[in-house]
């Protein structure tokens, strides 16, 4: 189990291209994050928790689906850590598991209205579905 976790942590770090040890824990990512209040784990915590291999709470958290991928944390981080890329790597580690899609085509009709642009559906699928 421990080894699985270590392997998964390394895989997430590799897929994200992020080096979490560059983080100096200034909290600017979480200061700038527009989704902060929606999240249970915040951008700076993602960096710290992935670095320390504390993946399980992250993988079970709704925070994964609240990140807006607006890249504000990436652009404003003074150390070039790119927290949003870690959030995405953890999310992909979850939704790529069997039956773990966060959104399926069956969910869509209920969420639609007349004006909603196609772009919203397409991008939601790319973010939430294998």
């Amino acid at each position: 189990m421990h080894n699985d976790n270590t392997r998964l942590t390394q895989e997430i770090i590799r897929a994200s291209g992020v080096n979490p040890s560059k983080c100096m824990k200034c909290g600017k990512c979480s200061a700038t994050c527009p989704a902060y209040d929606e999240m249970e784990y915040h951008p700076h915590q993602f960096v710290y928790m992935v670095e320390s291999g504390d993946l399980e709470p992250l993988m079970n958290s709704k925070s994964l689906y609240k990140c807006l991928s607006c890249f504000a944390c990436i652009d404003r981080c003074p150390r070039g850590v790119e927290p949003a890329k870690l959030v995405e790597a953890v999310r992909f580690a979850v939704i790529r598991q069997q039956g773990a899609d966060h959104m399926t085509p069956d969910d869509v009709p209920a969420k639609l209205n007349e004006d909603i642009p196609q772009q919203a559906i397409v991008s939601a699928f790319r973010k939430y579905r294998k």
């Binding site: 897929a15 994200s16 291209g17 991928s69 790597a89 992909f92 772009q119 919203a120 397409v122 790319r126």
Partner: peptide, 9 residues
């Protein structure tokens, strides 16, 4: 696809 996924895989 509306979104550029940042993971490199």
């Amino acid at each position: 696809g509306g979104v550029f996924t940042t993971v490199n895989n």
